[in-house]
Every structure is written in C-alpha cells, then in structure tokens.
Design a protein around this nucleic acid. Structure first.
Lengths: 348, 348
DNA sequence: AGACGATCGGAAAGCGCTCTCACGACGCTT
DNA sequence: AAGCGTCGTGAGAGCGCTTTCCGATCGTCT
C-alpha cells in the first residue's frame, strides 16, 4: 500500500516485477500461476518484488492469451409484464434471486471465479447477447423462468457455454438443473389431505411459466390419483400482492375451502393475510401450504408450511456443471434434478 | 447467424473480416469505432463483411490497448448482521437495490457501458478489491450504507475511480450523491403535525448507518424547532419484520401515539400491519409516514404516505458523475444532493 | 497544366501477458 | 570419464486489437 506504482500512475507490469526481482518475466509468470518447477528461493524473491511494486496482473492481457476470463455471468432473464414499471423491482424483491446468487457464489468462490450478475428483460436481450459474445465471461448461468423466452435458444445456438435453471421448453441440448416440481406439489397435496382437509384449492403461478404449470399439474394429478376431481384454482403472478388478491377472490367464490396450496411463498404471504383478514383461522379453518421455503416463509404469520426447493444447492450445482463444461468443452450436456421436501411449520 | 465462424469454432478475427472485405485491418477497426474518415462505400462493404462473418470484437484485446473496459461495477457493500443467514437475502429483498440498478442502467445504457453488479459483505472485501484492481472495470458505483464500512476508503486509497452513494463518514475526497435525509424527515414531521397529530413517535433505521442517524436527527430537530420535546423512538433494522416488531413494542409502551414516522417503507409495511392488528385505524387513530417511496409503499394497506427519495435519479446521477470522472481523470470530486419530496397517500 | 492541400487506406508497432522451446547445469548410470 | 535424463530458467513468439505515421490518391486553386 505504501509503495505506489511508477509509470505515471499506471499499474506496474510484469516486466517491472521481473526487473525488481532480477529474474525473467517468464519466471514471474510462473510464480504467479503457481507453476511447481520454481525454486523456493527465487519464488520468495519474486513474491517480495510483487509485494513491493504492488503488482496486480492485468486480466485483459491474460485473457487475451489464455482465452479464459475466470468469470461467469448469472443472467436473470425475466419477462416484462404490463403494469410493471420495472422488472428490476421484481428481481430485487423476490428472495429467490438472492438464494441463487448465494448458491452460485459459494460454488464459484473456491475456484476464484467471479460472478457477474446481469438482470435482463426481453427489450434487452441483444445487449446481453453481445456482452456474452464479446468474451467477457467463460460461461453463463441462465435463469430463465418464462416459457417463451428466446434467450436459452439464442445462447445455445451461439455456442455459448451455459447451464439453464430449468428444463428448457424447446428441445435444445443444454445442461440444466431443476427441481421435481410435480413431486413437490404432490407433497403439498398429500400433506393437506393427511391433515384432514377435504375442500382443497390452489393459487397457481403464472401458467406460461413451466414452474407455474408443473406445480399446478403436480397438485392436480396427485389429487386425481386419490380419487378427487377438479378443484378450484386461480392463476397468480408470484407476487405478494397477487397472492393476497387471489386468495380473497378464491374464498369469495368458494367459502368452504379448508386447504390451500399456494405455488410460492411470496404469494402465500399475501394469501395468509387475506385469509385471516376474512376472519378465517390458519390452519384450523384453512390450512395453507406454500412452495419454495424462502425467507418469506419465515416472514409469514403463522409460520408457513411449505415445499422446500433447495435453491442454493441447485445454483451451486449449476455452477459446478458449468465449470466442468468450461473445462472440457466437448462434454455432453447433462441435467440434474433435485428432490423437494416438505417443511412442516404452523400454517398446515 | 447462418454463417458460422471458421478457425475451428473460434470467433472470427478482424483480419478475417478485413480479408473478406478486401481492406486492411485498420479500416475494419475504423468502421467499428465509427471513425469519420471512412468512405461510405467502403464502410458498407466492411459492414457487410462483419455481418457475414458474424464478427464480434474481442474485448480483451481491445481493452489491452485502449485501457478501457466499457463496464463499471455496482458494488453493493452490506454489513453482515448476526442472525442473518445471508446478506444476499437482504439485498435481493429490499426494493432499494433494484431501483439503484434501474437508475444506473438507464444512464449507462446510452453510452454502451455495462453494469457489473457485485454484492459484497465484509468477509468478501478483498475479493472485490482484487477484482477492481485487476482492471475488470473502468470505475465503481459504490453503495455503502454502513458507517464503519472500510470499502470507500480502500477504494479511494487505491486510486480507483469511484462515486459513492452517500456522504462518506470519514473525510475522503470522493464524489458522492446523496439525498437530504434530514430535510426529508422534517417533511414527515411537518406533515404529521399539520394533520393534527400531537403524540408523535418514530421507528428509526439502524443508528450505525448515516441514513438511520440523519433521518432520526432530522425528525427530532424539526420537532424541536416547533417546540416539541423528545418523542418516543425505537431503533429498527430496515426490514419488514423489524418494523412490525418495533411498532408493536412502541405502541405497547406508548398507547397514545397518534402519529408515527417510520424511517423506511419496508419497515412501514410491517408497522402498518402491527398497528392495525392492535385494533388501531390508520390514519384516523395512528397516522403513519414512511420514507423511500419504493414499491413497498404501494404494497401497504392503506397506501403509504411517504417521503420520496428519487433513488433512480440519484443512481443515474452517480453514473453520470462516474462517467465524467472516467473521461477526465484529473477532475475534482464533486457531490450532488437531491431534495426529497412528500408523497401523500392514505396512511397519513 | 502544375502544384498544393485534404482525404483516406495500409503498414507496423505495441498493449501485458502466457507458454513453448531451447539451453545450461547438475546428478546419475554405465 | 562420457553420456543421458532432469530440472530450472530465459528468450521470444504471438494472442487480437488500436493507433500513429506515411504514402497514395483525389480535388481544387492559381
């Protein structure tokens, strides 16, 4: 910190370190990259020189020759809805993305790989694509939740190394990590049934998202397998306010509901509020099961019983798969599916 | 999209474009960088060649010579609290950061500058510092809300071009953008008084954050200037759950409160719920004024009257100042202060 | 018609790094 | 003692781009 670089405020280069240490540039490079074949004494001298000069490698130069940037992008591709001033508000308001970031970071950190977070909506895709093509990153973790999203296909066609957050809806040969959504929804249904609920209903996610669709299907098929017919349902939007609104309407139309499966914790939080505002007790009058097990589940009163999606682990796995893919480009794509679990708390 | 690059899957280089267009590499470079002295016909030919080959400039090579990356970092430096499994959860749960991102992006986009979002807590600072020193970005937008945060000073000492989100607590010569916090709190106090409230109280932000401290001070000084003495206060944590808890305790100790200033919208949301759970009507029994005017204000019932902080505009201004600083490195640091305004809705 | 300036394209030098290759020194075998 | 392999180091090419410097070409003025 004391010794500031020479060269008119510019950072010192490897040549200067080499000169200071009395060795060649190649040796400095070897020390920095941890090559094993460097004499211990020389390594010390070089390291001292590095410290003295305050040398930091210039990654542009390094990237130019290694073709590795040691960073990967986390692209959060969201769909812009109407009456949604900024999709960034949604991204920065839903705990899901924080969990993804945390999980990915934890896997990447040990390998000294940086995570570049890039939220994007459809108006923005070409910017992102350009960014990716310019070689800023070695690969992409692509969080794409919308069925119609063209980004996964684009990224794939461009030959950009990527791992997607869910099974792609169009048949492209890409690696992805997912949770068994249908199983999770079945778990919720089973639990509601087992605690004696007989008049079930569900607030689904947006049905143009695979996650919304699959959870809805999973819920219905489980009930069908147990001899139940169709149950009331209403399509939500994965937001707190939306959940509240849906619950209110659902209960207005079907006052006898005693068990409710809500396809996300955030919506559950709103739903819980509506149910209780309407004078019903939770879980005695209406039992509620959410989906996610995010921090929102703990913000609920009563505490939310919910289907746990191991988002952090899934994101970490995505990162692992991506790193493997980057290391061996010829590698065949593969998919990993995680099993959800039921977390029983107070709401059901 | 049809013509895939040659060179064994590698991206095409400028040389290949030059050959395809029948010109020299220099001319291709000029076309790409919009140099004025290129003949229109030649420019067309080159552009066609670029399209045909699917050429995308390699930014590592470009950065190496220009010493510009055309991206800036948005470093969100948060303090890790106890009982906080992941600080990322806070970052991705508070609408504030989405607004910052949106504002910065809008200013940067026209200049084709990328925003690299980097959330960090104290355990992580050296990673971030290394990232910044390696030259990944041309400058930094530093969102640092905590008084003790060493990052602003570190960044400054390292000579990294940066703009900070609030007046630095230690006296360093850095550019910053801020809102007049005290004025905003005064606005809230004035409004409560003007609508007839006489027994005021406040839920503050964390008092180790300048924002928390200043809003508290501003509120008290305004009241003092109107002849009021000390009012009940309780320190919150800028979270929804914290706000609810604080309101509950405040009202338990001081049942006669009829006007409440809550130092953030997120806390207001919780406080509003607590107040109403306790059987008080809002605003008739207790009037509530928040601070931020974020999306949370519209999630409140009743809709929240709040002090608007123009976060998007502030972030955009930060980006502008940063770009100016990058363009002319010798430029003296400057600060810009925005004025808050009162947004009257239904809660007060 | 000649000369001069303006305009435009090309050659080539590097930006800072990695990594292959060559080479000297040393220790071992035969 | 001569030959061989091994280890540690240095020299140098080259990654893909920008940019300066020059030369060529054109138009214009006297």
């Amino acid at each position: 910190m004391s010794t500031r670089p020479a060269r008119g405020g510019q950072n010192p280069t490897m040549d200067q370190v080499a000169e200071a240490a009395g060795v060649s540039r190649a040796t400095v490079s070897r020390v920095i990259n941890g090559a094993p074949s460097v004499d211990a004494k020389i390594r010390d001298v070089v390291q001292r020189a590095i410290a003295e000069t305050g040398y930091v490698p210039n990654i542009a130069a390094r990237t130019l020759v290694t073709r590795r940037t040691n960073s990967v992008a986390l692209v959060i591709s969201e769909h812009k809805r109407q009456n949604d001033s900024s999709f960034l508000n949604r991204v920065f308001t839903d705990p899901y993305f924080g969990r993804v970031t945390a999980g990915a970071t934890s896997a990447l950190r040990p390998h000294d790989i940086h995570l570049v977070i890039i939220p994007t909506d459809s108006s923005d895709h070409h910017h992102v694509v350009r960014y990716l093509r310019q070689g800023h990153v070695d690969g992409v973790l692509l969080i794409s939740s919308h069925e119609q999203d063209p980004l996964p296909r684009q990224v794939h066609d461009l030959g950009i190394t990527a791992v997607v957050s869910a099974r792609p809806t169009s048949p492209i040969a890409a690696s992805y990590v997912d949770v068994d959504q249908r199983l999770g929804a079945g778990l919720a249904a089973e639990h509601l049934l087992s605690r004696g609920c007989r008049t079930l209903a569900t607030i689904t996610g947006p049905l143009d998202m695979p996650a919304g669709q699959d959870r809805f299907d999973g819920f219905r098929s489980y009930l069908a397998s147990r001899g139940f017919g169709e149950v009331p349902s209403i399509e939500g939007d994965f937001t707190r306010a939306g959940g509240e609104d849906c619950a209110r309407r659902l209960l207005a139309d079907h006052p006898d509901i005693d068990g409710l499966f809500v396809a996300s914790d955030l919506m559950s939080e709103g739903a819980l509020r509506a149910v209780q505002d309407l004078g019903r007790r939770v879980p005695d009058d209406v039992a509620v099961v959410g989906f996610d097990d995010s921090s929102a589940a703990l913000d609920c009163r009563p505490l939310l019983t919910t289907v746990r999606q191991p988002v952090e682990e899934m994101a970490a796995e995505m990162a692992e798969v991506l790193m493997a893919q980057i290391a061996s480009p010829g590698r065949l794509p593969r998919s990993v599916t995680f099993q959800p679990t039921l977390v029983v708390r107070d709401s059901a």
